[in-house]
């Protein structure tokens, strides 16, 4: 009862009408996601060991005008960055005189499964690599170029371009490789660990209260199959580690550095929670 009352108060504060006796429900919208007519898997049965029955893309939790932006790759402003990423893919940089394309040729073939299967185990580094870390490794070891700093230079557009090649493919991380299972476990620990002055864990909002409102925001399951994602608020692409840091900041906790072991473990675990959902990069959110 206490929880319902709180939700009602939040709804009223948001300027929405709600009767005090009414339980405010805000289910994700029941609509099929198609991008340029291509069907996406935006709701699917959860994998074994998942606490929820069904995994649902954050797209279902948004209002019609935001959902519509993602359904059309022309109207999706995130595609501007994807096109910029394509230019970077074909641009020679560094002392080796190479571009991404010099080795990987046509991204639509060579990168087709990258966006849906990363993070992947990287034996040499002894940790899971996301697309951003893989790009930096390529830049330093193969191209003789400077690694991108977090969210700087071509990192977001190039990551978005590479992940976009997997548009529609279901997310599937390989936990059998190397020590992935161990990293998955530590990611899970972090997911359920309460932090900050507000004493919230990821699960407090995205597992226990998804579908409800936090002030005027409709809480999603926090799946990351659309990252880097275009946020209307910032009017630009937002990387997954930026979003993690934003969430942690909102619990009023100190946040770990981007690509730190903590956030890499969390990225692996949260990616796994979205198993089976189509890659939507670049998603569009509020």
């Amino acid at each position: 009862m206490k929880k319902n009352k709180l939700t009602t108060v939040l709804m009223v504060a948001a300027g929405l009408t709600a009767s005090a006796s009414l339980v405010v429900t805000a289910d994700p919208v029941d609509e099929a996601l198609e991008i340029d007519g291509q069907a996406m898997i935006s709701r699917t049965a959860a994998p074994d060991g998942h606490p929820l029955k069904e995994v649902i893309s954050g797209w279902h939790y948004r209002k019609a005008e935001t959902r519509n932006l993602e359904k059309d790759t022309f109207e999706n402003p995130g595609m501007l960055a994807v096109e910029q990423g394509e230019e970077i893919w074909n641009t020679v940089e560094g002392t080796a005189g190479k571009s991404c394309a010099s080795c990987h040729n046509d991204a639509s073939e060579s990168m087709a499964k990258v966006g849906s299967t990363y993070p992947k185990w990287n034996e040499a580094s002894g940790k899971p690599f996301n697309v951003e870390l893989q790009i930096n490794q390529c830049r330093t070891e193969n191209m003789g170029a400077e690694p991108y700093k977090f969210d700087k230079g071509g990192q977001k557009p190039l990551t978005a371009y590479i992940k976009h090649q997997s548009l529609g493919k279901p997310v599937e991380v390989d936990l059998a490789e190397g020590e992935m299972q161990k990293w998955w476990e530590s990611g899970k620990d972090l997911y359920y660990k309460r932090t900050g002055q507000l004493n919230l864990s990821c699960a407090s909002c995205h597992e226990k209260n998804n579908g409800k409102h936090i002030r005027a925001d409709h809480l999603s399951q926090g799946n990351i199959n659309g990252f880097p994602t275009y946020r209307l608020k910032q009017g630009t692409l937002i990387s997954v580690h930026n979003r993690f840091r934003g969430c942690i900041r909102d619990t009023r906790a100190e946040f770990p550095a981007a690509f730190s072991d903590e956030l890499m473990a969390l990225e692996l675990y949260v990616t796994w929670r979205g198993t089976g959902l189509s890659v939507e990069t670049p998603g569009v959110r509020q």
């Binding site: 936090i214 002030r215 005027a216 925001d217």
Partner: peptide
């Protein structure tokens, strides 16, 4: 047009 204020740094 009503402009809502989000919950998460919105």
């Amino acid at each position: 047009i009503k402009v809502t204020i989000g919950g998460c740094g919105g």
